[in-house]
Amino acid sequence: MLRQDSPNRIAPDRNGTSANANLHGEASRVGGVDIQRELAKLEEMILEGSRLPILNRTLINEDQVLDQLEMVQMNLHPAFEEAKKLLQHKEEILLEAEQYAQEIIETAERRAAQILDEMGLVRQAELEMKQIRQRVQQECEVAHEQAMVEIERMRRQTQQEIEEMRRRAIAECEEIQEGADTYADRILQDLEQQFSDMLRVVRNGRGQLQPEAPVRNAARGGDRLKK
């Protein structure tokens, strides 16, 4: 069989396989038969044919080429089915990867939302704590003012009570002093009355003794003459 040389054919590598066969060798292996390798063998059969430079043709072994083509053709359908399965499996893997990535994204979004909620709760707690602190401070200031007003009221009331007690004490002292003066005056009056009575008794006694005084004096004079 004569074959015209193609300027765009794929040259085999050093191991007798083409670059395309190296790229898809594993994917085209079906039932122990490597389609890429068999295609590479077919290409080698063609390339190893006798060259006819004048006609720009290659003389090949038709039986070997047909047998090789038949074997490749027999394994193409299983290879295509295997390729479909691989593509389907690849799509399933990609779908699972997309689902997994979507789950990761959703989890990250939920976590981010949770963090934002927690940050919002923290800010809300800080705001409430600030409001409570301000309210407590205001209540303390009001309580302090009320306490100062109450202390001032109690101070004035105490001062008034002390002034009232002082006034009462002075009044009681004056009353006691007046009572003491009255009592002393009454005592002195009683003493004066007693002294008056005693003086009257003394005077009466002296009055009773005065008539006998000349007789006694005369008797005393006679006695002195006798001596």
Rank of each mutant, 00 (worst) to 15 (best):
R155K: 11
A218Q: 10
K227H: 14
F195S: 12
Q160D: 12
R203G: 08
G179V: 08
I162S: 04
R123G: 03
R110L: 03
P214A: 01
A40R: 01
K90W: 07
G49I: 01
E150T: 04
K85L: 05
R186D: 06
A219S: 13
L2G: 08
R216N: 14
V202E: 14
E38M: 00
Q160S: 09
L42P: 02
R203S: 11
Q64E: 09
A101K: 07
A19M: 05
V202K: 09
D13E: 06
L191E: 10
R156H: 09
V72L: 00
D63F: 01
E70G: 06
V202I: 11
L76A: 01
Q36G: 15
E178F: 11
K84Y: 05
K226F: 14
R155G: 06
D190A: 12
G25S: 00
G207F: 15
E152I: 05
E164D: 05
D197I: 09
E161Q: 06
G222M: 15
V149N: 13
M165K: 13
R57L: 04
L39N: 00
R123K: 08
G120C: 06
R110S: 04
T58E: 02
E38D: 01
A184F: 12
E145H: 08
E141Y: 01
A213C: 13
E192G: 11
D223R: 08
Q114T: 06
V136W: 04
Q208N: 10
H89E: 15
A83C: 06
L69N: 00
I93P: 03
R111C: 05
A143S: 09
A171H: 08
P214E: 03
E44M: 08
Q131T: 11
A113L: 10
Q210P: 02
K85V: 03
P53C: 03
Q160N: 10
T158V: 12
I46E: 01
E178K: 10
Q138Y: 04
G16R: 01
M74I: 11
A97G: 10
Q208K: 11
R9S: 13
R156W: 04
E152A: 12
D34W: 00
L39K: 01
R123P: 01
Q159S: 07
D13Y: 02
K227S: 15
D13F: 03
E174M: 04
R57Q: 04
L95I: 09
L39W: 00
P7S: 05
L39Y: 00
I170T: 14
Q193Y: 14
M165L: 15
Q138W: 05
Q64D: 09
A79R: 01
E163Q: 12
Q210M: 14
R168Y: 04
T107E: 15
E145Y: 04
Q131Y: 05
A184Q: 13
R166I: 03
D197T: 12
L209G: 03
R216W: 15
N75K: 00
F80Y: 14
M74K: 05
